[in-house]
């Protein structure tokens, strides 16, 4: 039976992991390759790298980093952040990424999803959606959550699916960083609206939150950043808990 996936996310800036660092293990945790190897050893099902390096000239460093990571870990990994053209996707895939996630550029030029899926296959294209509840509606925000696009998040997820996206990475901006658990209503609505896997993101505090998003919202994968860095909520204990609750995980 297909397992539910647990995906650690690493925010990378200038080749350093900048979020959720375990203070007791600062040096090794700051190095993305070392952290990737650690997660690989801890049975992460996949890794997500988000490049938040601001300047364009630094793009080359992320490619070198992707190359180095691909030589050291043997699980799938996705890279996102600042992907705006077909060339960006090609460069990342050629450097060893298995999937590429697109956020703002897909909202600005939805045709990019069609052309990317056609060129590289749907399975390599992840559409990242940052959603925030305004009134009764979930709205897509772009530019790292700074700009209100005015687009309904569930409609956008459906459109991305119809255009050929292979997966949806869905982040609740209301929950991100709060440790109040995943946004179940949002996740569930998107899961029901598309026929591709949905990765839930934003708000995870512990294994119980993951249990909830798998059972109540039927997400295919749960993504989190900082919680994995602490010993008491490493990936293996989380998976053991999920398994004890009858959720199929790879252990």
């Amino acid at each position: 039976m297909l397992a539910k996936r647990i995906i650690p996310c690493l925010d990378i800036k200038n080749n350093e992991v900048v979020k959720g660092i375990n203070f007791e293990d600062l040096r090794s945790a700051g190095d993305p390759v070392e952290l990737a190897k650690r997660y690989d050893g801890e049975l992460a099902d996949e890794l997500m790298f988000l490049d938040i390096t601001a300047s364009h000239e630094k793009r080359k460093t992320i490619l070198e980093l992707v190359d180095k990571i691909s030589e050291n870990i043997f699980i799938p990994f996705s890279v996102g952040g600042g992907v705006s053209e077909i060339e960006d996707i090609r460069d990342l895939l050629n450097s060893g990424a298995d999937k590429v996630s697109i956020n703002t550029a897909a909202v600005l030029k939805p045709g990019l999803i069609d052309s990317a899926a056609k060129k590289f296959g749907s399975s390599t294209i992840v559409i990242a959606i940052d959603a925030k509840k305004i009134g009764d509606e979930y709205i897509v925000f772009t530019h790292g959550g700074r700009k209100n696009s005015g687009i309904n998040a569930i409609d956008w997820a459906k459109e991305a699916y119809n255009r050929g996206a292979g997966e949806i990475l869905l982040t609740s901006m209301d929950r991100d960083g709060t440790k109040n658990g995943y946004e179940i209503e949002l996740t569930s609505s998107v899961v029901k609206g598309v026929k591709i896997p949905v990765i839930a993101s934003g708000g995870a505090r512990d294994a119980k939150d993951m249990e909830e998003v798998f059972i109540k919202a039927d997400a295919s994968a749960a993504l989190a950043a900082s919680i994995f860095h602490y010993e008491n909520s490493g990936i293996i204990p989380i998976k053991k808990y999920l398994k004890s609750k009858g959720i199929n995980v790879r252990l």
Binding site: M1, A3, R5, S123, G166, E167, K195, P197, S220, A221
Partner: peptide, 11 residues
Amino acid sequence: IPLIPHIGWND
């Protein structure tokens, strides 16, 4: 089948 492709870890 609700989700295609078959994507992820299976035994």
